[in-house]
Amino acid sequence: MSLFGLFPRKKTASAARDRLQILLAHERTGGGGSSELLAKLREEVLAAIAKHVSVDETRVNVSMKNEDEMSIIEIDLEIPHADLPRLRLAASR
């Protein structure tokens, strides 16, 4: 204790606090209410897109990012090339 006390040791409590703050910021928005929101969005967005192109349900990713002033919802979906002509057609109308 006495010898080691001469050298400043990294405080573990601040590491605990920092890790928790990051984790909880994620969990508070990722769990519960907003995950239900994302599931619903995923379902409805898929239904809307499926009207025009065929989408592989497993290739859709909906996520939410939280920034200081706002949250960003990202929807990534892959559309197979075979469906592109139909999509262009739909878009040009």
Binding site: R9, K11, T12, A13, S14, A16, R17, L20, Q21, L24
Partner: peptide, 16 residues
């Protein structure tokens, strides 16, 4: 432990 910095302080926990 808190004063040695090895346990989160009351302020830390309250803030979180």
């Amino acid at each position: 432990r808190a004063s040695r910095g090895d346990m989160m302080s009351v302020e830390d926990v309250l803030e979180i």
